[in-house]
Every structure is written in structure tokens, then in C-alpha cells.
Nucleic acid binder design. Sequence first.
DNA 1: CATCGTTACGAAAACGTTTCAGTTTTTTAT
DNA 2: ATAAAAAACTGAAACGTTTTCGTAACGATG
Lengths: 340, 340
Amino acid sequence: MTIKELSKKCGLSISTVSKALNGYTDISEATRETVTKVAKEMGYYPNAHARALKTKRSYNLGVLFVDDTQSGLTHAFFSFVLENFKKEAERHGYDVTFISHNMGETSMTYLEHCHYREVDGVCIACIDFLDTEVTQLVNSELPIVTIDHLFNNRMGIQSNNVEGIRQLVDYIFTKGHRKIAYIHGPRSAVTDMRLGSFYRTMEFYQVPVPEEYIESCEYNDPASAFAATKKLLSLPNRPTCILISDDYAALGAYEAAADMGLQIPQDISIAGYDGIPMMQLMKPRLTSVLQDTHRIGAEAASKLVQLIESPKTTIPEITVIPCTLIKGETIGELPKQDHK
Amino acid sequence: MTIKELSKKCGLSISTVSKALNGYTDISEATRETVTKVAKEMGYYPNAHARALKTKRSYNLGVLFVDDTQSGLTHAFFSFVLENFKKEAERHGYDVTFISHNMGETSMTYLEHCHYREVDGVCIACIDFLDTEVTQLVNSELPIVTIDHLFNNRMGIQSNNVEGIRQLVDYIFTKGHRKIAYIHGPRSAVTDMRLGSFYRTMEFYQVPVPEEYIESCEYNDPASAFAATKKLLSLPNRPTCILISDDYAALGAYEAAADMGLQIPQDISIAGYDGIPMMQLMKPRLTSVLQDTHRIGAEAASKLVQLIESPKTTIPEITVIPCTLIKGETIGELPKQDHK
DNA sequence: CATCGTTACGAAAACGTTTCAGTTTTTTAT
DNA sequence: ATAAAAAACTGAAACGTTTTCGTAACGATG
């Protein structure tokens, strides 16, 4: 079912049919109607490749997503962002192509893959943003939106990490905790914001943070969080509350506590970050900061589409998505005398 | 960077360059070498759309995946299958495109989407296989592989559900349980196999299954499993062990038990199905049947590629993937006198 | 009636490839 | 040295679109 056959059925030329379908104004309403009608009847859709070849628009959005734990689509948090990105992209008529650098035998750079598939734009998330291949991509002429990292003069979507941590620490304070440890993820823009917000909030409350209360683990990796939690729990001056890099990693903290015979939240309080649904089904329900994966994904997609479809009138901007505290059940209330 | 520019650099015609890159034999080794060398230097890759237009091969595999809970990429089990499918597809030089029926304003059928993007083949998983749009796709001329459902004369990948349930029930029997209930998923090929295997195994042990021990819930839906579990636990003649449709739904059973003040596995035993990693981090670790998501995804991709690349010599066959019992900690040992 | 403006349509080039059917060059055989 | 065969290369069409430019038809205008 090509446009040629369709035009034959309509008794019109190829160009007329094409124009009728693409909203050109030099087509009478009558013929436009018949064309669209016949097209619908025959289930005609313009071939995406032919169209892409001619117009340089593939209606494909690239997604670059490479996490340390190699979880890919199974990522406990980002799979939600991706799902919503995909849904919004489809709403705008775009399909999604995952960008990688090993296609068959030959390996290509991310940028080469983008050119090869002629994606109209790229969403970059959860990756080592300092990787040379990534910066090569960012420095290209392609429309780009990044999630959780900002590049100069590029669209960026950011969850409000500063506010998230602040709310979380605030809440923990109201529960009477002062000895608060933080197991943060590897150095990155996100980690810096959260850790910075943690320090500033603690400073605001004029509570010093002992150096040994700051540990690190991999994101999305319960095993490394398990190790870090055990380390903190073995400290002579043990913290009463531990913040963990993310919800999924927090599973390692549950395990570490159980391993040392400690009850959550009676003996030790913990909190995660992300607010993934599954952790709200745990006993006890994890205290966390809910990131709005729907808005993050959808905004990323719609901003990217906007950038593609109206490059002139669209200026790169950063969009901050608010997050919400989930109180959960893993922060215990400390007796009054322990309050400062 | 088009083939035209490349040919100019090489001082050869377009056709020669094309043939040199595509392994034609009427090209001297010398020129082939220079062409490949220059191509690599310049980072040349043939434009995927132009190539697809000409060759009718897009090197894109469609994935059709629509679950009841609308979880999409976030599906606790299938995201693993998809991730492995994608990895294997990429190894063969194929990208993955998700097939849906709402692209922009216009809605197209699954088959139309496939034609529109000219995917070379489709993997169908976790969907209502009786949907007319799905059968339309299955009856098309496209290479197709299905996961967990078999169509006549089509490639199929199947996890060994019969054996999985058998092993699980066997194990539960050795722990002394006789009053075993099953919360199965909605009617489907998979459900039929598992439920059938459950009945047959129980029959083998000559243990009758009371009708009220069979409940149902949605797959991947803790809420509905919660409800079904509560129902079973409220029975006058309460079962000692409950099988749940899948691991993620089993979270609902943990909750139902806690809700009724019952300890797992002391007061009630439960088991899931799938063996998703997260449930092995729960306390207590869920007893389950581990499906080999790696092999399921990878086999689906490689069989599909085989079907695409050697249609003559490839005959549709069903591939059965073995699964493994995960003993976990959620099946309690019943005292001897309770044994039959 | 000639001219002009509109309106509606069509011819053809172009996008970047692959591939068929030549054509030129080189090698081999006589 | 010449013809034939083989090897190496090239021209051009084709894939299914979009889009520029041209033109036919037609009513309106002077």
C-alpha cells in the first residue's frame, strides 16, 4: 500500500494525494476529503523510511540510558521515567529508539548511532555525563534534553533534589533525630545536590555532621548499600538514622539491620529516595522522597518535541519537578530527652 | 557524510563503494581495503532509512507488550525479559521498536504500526493473545515469535510452567503441606498450564483440591492478590500454604498475612512465581520458581533474527526454557502428625 | 475579447541507498 | 598479436516519499 496505489485509486496524481494528506492549502476541500477517506479505507500510512529520507525527520526519539548496575530497562526507578517518556513521546507521534554503542559486530559511538537512525532528538538520563561519547553527543547539533544533569544552553529536567532532601531531613528532625548519617551515591550532579542540601540543612539546624557518618554506595545496588549500612551500624557512636542513596538500595539497609539484629524503626531509622511503589509495600513502609516520575518523563518528552518542532521559538530552559515526602514507617520517634 | 561524499574521497563510483562495503565479490581486495579504511576514518555509516527503503529491511524488531496493569517497561518480571531481548537484538545489529496503537492523533492497528515502521519481525509477549489486533498481526506475513503463548506454525518461546509448578508443589509436599491453595492469574495459556500442572500434581499425590482453595487475581497486581489472600485466610478450613500467581503480586500476600496478624512462614506459607531478584531481598525470602529471563529474552531475539535472516531454512518451533525452584524461606515445615 | 488572478492540480527532482546491467580493464589462451 | 574470458568497476534505475515549480482551467476585470 504505497502512495502510488492510493493515488491510482483516487484517480489523482501522487503529488496531489501527498499534499492532500499533508494539509497543503492548494487542494480543494472536496478532493482532500475523498483522499483521506480512501486512505483510511485502505489503511494507508506513509512509509516512515521514505518519509524520513526525504524530510530528515524520523519521528524517532533516541534515549540514552546506561546505569552503573547495567540494569537497563529493569532499573527500579528509571524504568518509570522511561515508561512515561515513551508514553508522552507516542502521544506526539514519536517512537523511541534506545541508543547504544554496540550494534552487531561494529561498534559505533552514541552520536553515530543517532545519525545512523536519524533520530530527531535525544533524551539523556542516568549516565556518566562526563563520558567523552556523551559530551560528543551533547556538543552535536541534535536537539537534546537531559534528566538530572544540566549542560550549558541545553534543555534540562531536574527533580527538586535540594527541596526533597530538605523536607526529608526536616521530617527526621521533628522525630527527634540528631545523629543522622548519609549513604550517598557516586559523585554526580544529583549526588552533589542532595549531599549539598543535606549538609546545608544540618548546618541550618546547627548540628555537626561527623565525617564518619558520610558513606557511599552505588545507586540501585542493595549489596553496596548493605555494606555501607553495616559499616555505619558498627560505629562506636552509631547514628540513629541513616539516609540511603535510593529506595532500591535501601533494601540492603533493611537486610543489614536484620543481620545485626536491629529492628526498624525501633533500633535504627532509615530513609530512601525515589518513592518507588514497591518499597511502599514493604514492612515497614519505607520513608522516602517521591520523585514525580510521570512528570519527569512526560516533561522530558514534551520539551524535546517542542525543541524539535519549534526550534526557533524554543529556548533551552531547566524545568524543576517538585517531589513529595513519603513519611512511611521507618523513621522512629526518639524520646524527648534525646532531643537537643 | 553520505556514500556520495565517501566515494568522492575514495576516487571511486558510488556503486563500487557500496559493493565494497557490502561484501560483493566483484571488487578487488585492494579497493575494498581502502574503502573500509576511509569509511572508518570518516565515521561513515549508511543511512538506515535510505537502506531500509531500498532493501525493505529496517534492522528494527518490533516488540508488542501490553499488560493488564499497564505497567509497560516497569513490569516487575517482563522488564527483565525485554532487557535481555533488547541486548540480544543489539548483538545481532537490530534496534527495538515498541509497537503500540496510538501514535500521535491517529490511532493505527498493531499491524499498521509494524508496516509503518517496516519492522523486520515482531516479538509478542504478555498480551491478550485473543485480541483481534493481535491475531491480525499473527496472521500477517511478518516473522513473529511469541513468548508464553503458542500459535500454529509460529515460533514460540515457553518457560516450562508445567515443570515449574510441579517442582514447587513437590517441594511444598516435602515440607508436609497438604492444604494447598492457588491464587492463579486471569485465564491465559500460561495460567492454564500452571493451573493444569497444579491439579495434576495434586492428583498424583492423591490430595483433593477443594474448590474454595482456587482463587484468582490479576498478574503483577499486589492489590488483587491481597484481596484473594485475605479471602483464603478467612476460610473456615484455612489452607496451610498459598501459591500466588507471581512474585510481585505476592507482595499483596505478605501484606494480607501481616494484616491478619499471621507470621510467614510460621502461621501461613506462601510461594510466588517468577523469581524476580527483588523478592529475594525480602524478609522472609520468597519461595518461588525462577524463570530464566535471560534465556527467554535472548532466545526470543535470536530465533526471531534467524527467522528473518534465513526464512527458507528456519522452521517454526517451540523452545522450552527450563526453570529452577527457589526454596526461599516462606514455606514452613509442618509437624509430622499433620502429614497425611 | 484579451488579460489577469485564483484555484486546483501534476511533473519531476531529490533524499541516500542497493543492485542490475552494462562497460572498461586486465588476464589468459591461442 | 589477437581473441576470448575474467575481473573490476560504473551508470542508472529504483525504493516511497515530499516539495518546488509549472500549467491548465476558469471566472473576473477592464
